[in-house]
Amino acid sequence: MEEIKLNQTPVRTSRNYNINNIKLKDIKIPKEIGNFESLEMKGKTSLVEKVTSLGNMELKYGVGVINKPNMNLQINIAETIEEPLELDFMLNEQNRNLVENIVINASKGIQATVILKYETVEDIQGFHNGILKVNADKNAKIDIVLINLVNEQTNNFLSIENVLEEQSNVKYTVVDFGGKNSITNYYSNIKGQKADSTINTIYLGKDNQLFDINYIGELWGKQSNLDIDVQGAIKDNARKHFKGTIDFKRGCKKATGNENEYCTILSDTAKSIALPMLLCEEEDVEGNHATSAGKIGEKELFYIMSRGFELKEALKLMLRAKFNKVLENIPVEELKEQIITEMETRLD
């Protein structure tokens, strides 16, 4: 199997830093993907339309390694929906390979929450390669919750592309725990005036997992905003590459962009690389980024342990606190509990 290069950054830096892209060797990409029929849905499921084609699914960035999908879903949201729309993709023996294309069109002024969950429910070597496109019309407010709980034998690729019109608001809450190699790409074209794009992510890597996260936001609209917040932890031999780009385009006057990434390192063999980029060709903007890495503070651990907790429990509590900003955004209690249980299992 030849090497594949994915997740290119918008601007290159020295090749020696090993961050311009991710090279995967000997990765098993299925030749025949077959059908995928293991999808459970809740909420206003009538909005979800299975179609034969979604038209042009080309991506500006993106990590697609297989072009032909085995599922095309179109979700046109013309009215506000109160209850979240949930789609649960469950990979199993009969449905090992999921290559789905999803387009969500949020009409003017609507409000909606869509939850997409990916999990392996049997002990299989699965494969996931998805594309999600979200088009938010004027004043639309859409929350997307993405949960990746596939197992560590499954390769996970996901590309997200958003287009934000005037005063629209697209907010992502991402839980990225699963995958042997989890390669995710997020690109937001924030073109409308006062449009607001947010992504809050937590990741938790263990064993030999590799996370390659490439988030890019282009700010074109006046007074538009982009917030990227990524909190994660890696243990054992896990590796995490985070690439975040805030790109202020000429004309995006009074736009703001903030990016924050914190990686908690739980072993001396785990590795974290971060490349938080700020690109700017407009004077009248405010951009900030901050990244940090390190272990959990000894003082804080000592304090919790002095209250009667064991080290492992204290660690879990501390991480739970760090992850809480994302967890509290998950609108379904049952799902939240499942994530917390998964988190605790992973930290044991």
Binding site: C263, L275, L278, V285, E286, H289, T291, G294, K295
Partner: peptide, 24 residues
């Protein structure tokens, strides 16, 4: 004006922080 910093951390016993600002 572009900021392109690579931060490569290979151990846990470390205190690392990076911050950047851009504006007029």
């Amino acid at each position: 004006s572009d900021t392109i910093p690579v931060n490569d951390i290979r151990t846990d016993e470390v205190e690392f922080s990076h911050e950047a600002k851009i504006g007029k």
